[in-house]
């Protein structure tokens, strides 16, 4: 089986300050990987390097493209990378405002990717948007409302619909449940789990919330000061942490 994504020796520094150092891993189709670590550990830098938002100083990010197999997305031309970004890749931001067009209706937000790849039938685009709003549990009569009037949880679900409408194969998520109430978080987590399973999605989820990765991620990568200090099966890393920092992290979680 070929990996969907091969990450090799990714390093990125901001001048003298280290973003992330020498990160390598393979991600296989259908796998969900969590990246945890405290603020400033380099997890967001890494995610942005992988998703093509930042250019790493060193390393390669090879993605199994539909047409040509494994291609280094860092040396790809920008149009190719953009095309990936709106077809096979999706990026869910922590703040839905960063991932949505707030002055465009919910339907228009979901339909944009389709139109970007030349969907030119209004009825079909609208039907897809309707279908996806249903899948993320947004009432159909909200299709023409702008997301400014939506609750935080609805905005996040709309962002997910907008990202998944193209049937991507790899989803990057940056603290997807970040600013949400715990009750809303739970619903979103269940939704994401179902979508990941039904669409056989691969995902890389950056979060500092260990409960989120336990429920969503198959594998876990623990970062500290830009380095990966521990990797493994999620429940194994959380229940039998090997590294001192991971032990500290796991034991620091507040019990309810």
């Amino acid at each position: 089986m070929t990996p969907l994504l091969e990450v090799e020796n990714i390093s990125k520094s901001y001048g003298a300050r280290v973003g992330c150092t020498d990160v390598s891993f393979d991600l296989y189709p259908g796998e969900v990987m969590g990246i945890v670590g405290e603020s400033g550990s380099g997890k967001s830098t890494l995610l942005n390097c992988l998703a093509g938002h930042l250019c790493p100083d060193l390393g390669a990010v090879r993605f199994d493209t539909r047409a040509d197999g494994l291609r280094d997305t860092l040396t790809m031309s920008e149009p190719e990378r953009r095309m990936l970004g709106r077809t096979d890749w999706a990026f869910v931001h922590q703040n839905p405002r960063d991932g949505l067009r707030m002055n465009v209706s919910a339907g228009g937000n979901v339909g944009e990717r389709l139109m970007a790849v030349n969907a030119r039938h209004y009825g079909d685009i609208r039907a897809s948007a309707m279908d996806w709003l249903g899948r993320v549990e947004i009432a159909h009569d909200r299709i023409d409302d702008r997301p400014t009037g939506f609750s935080g949880g609805m905005q996040q679900r709309l962002q997910i619909a907008r990202n998944l409408v193209m049937g991507p194969r790899l989803v990057f998520m940056d603290e997807p449940t970040g600013g949400l109430d715990v009750s809303v978080q739970a619903r979103l987590l269940d939704l994401l789990r179902g979508l990941v399973r039904d669409m056989n999605l691969s995902a890389i989820i950056v979060t500092h919330d260990l409960a989120v990765v336990r429920l969503l991620a198959d594998r876990l990568m623990v970062m500290k000061d830009g380095n990966v200090i521990e990797t493994g099966l999620t429940d194994q890393v959380l229940d039998d942490p090997q590294h001192a920092y991971t032990q500290l992290l796991v034991s620091s979680v507040l019990q309810v």
Partner: peptide, 25 residues
């Protein structure tokens, strides 16, 4: 990890003493 995930999915079941699920499901 992915081999263990596949193993747990198709071969090896586990009934623990604790129920750990997504809330509200």
């Amino acid at each position: 990890p992915r081999e263990i995930i596949a193993l747990r999915r198709y071969t090896l079941g586990y009934v623990s003493q604790f129920l750990r699920v997504v809330p509200r499901v």
